[in-house]
């Protein structure tokens, strides 16, 4: 399970960490019950601030992807629908932006199906 951080990207590092872990969960590359490294170990390895990794983990915990284990790191949790409302909102926002940019309904449908199939095939997007 590789995690790559672009140190010069315009996307904040904590967001990159969060997005990649979510993508790996979606693609089934990490399964519920698997552990994530401690905040300190990951920050040291990436040479980034502790708060950056902490922020990513906090966000993942709030969104229901992981449980924080304190000094022992974190653990991937069973998927649940308790955050579905938040996911729906994010999805609606993404669709709104796509429509505003002139993306057609069929193109959107195709994109959703393609992404879903890619994730089910164990590939991150």
């Amino acid at each position: 399970m590789l995690l790559t951080v672009d140190l010069q990207s315009s996307i904040p590092i904590y967001q990159q960490i969060r997005n990649q872990i979510v993508a790996q969960v979606a693609a089934g590359l990490v399964r519920p019950g698997e552990k994530l490294p401690t905040i300190r170990a990951l920050a040291n390895q990436l040479q980034v601030n502790l708060h950056t990794v902490n922020k990513a983990y906090q966000q993942l915990a709030q969104e229901g992807f992981i449980d924080l284990l304190g000094r022992r790191g974190a653990i991937i949790v069973q998927p649940s629908t308790k955050n579905l409302q938040q996911t729906k909102k994010s999805f609606q926002q993404a669709v709104t932006e796509a429509v505003a940019q002139g993306v057609s309904c069929s193109a959107l449908q195709q994109l959703v199906i393609q992404t879903y199939q890619q994730l089910k095939a164990g590939k991150t997007v």
Binding site: M1, L2, L3, T4, V5, D6, L7, Q8, S9, V30, E34, K35, L36, P37, T38, A41, L42, Q45, L46, Q47, G73
Partner: peptide
């Protein structure tokens, strides 16, 4: 720019 970390390796070697 880029740094890649193997999370599984990091966990098992803590």
């Amino acid at each position: 720019k880029r740094v890649t970390v193997d999370l599984k390796e990091l966990v098992t070697n803590q």
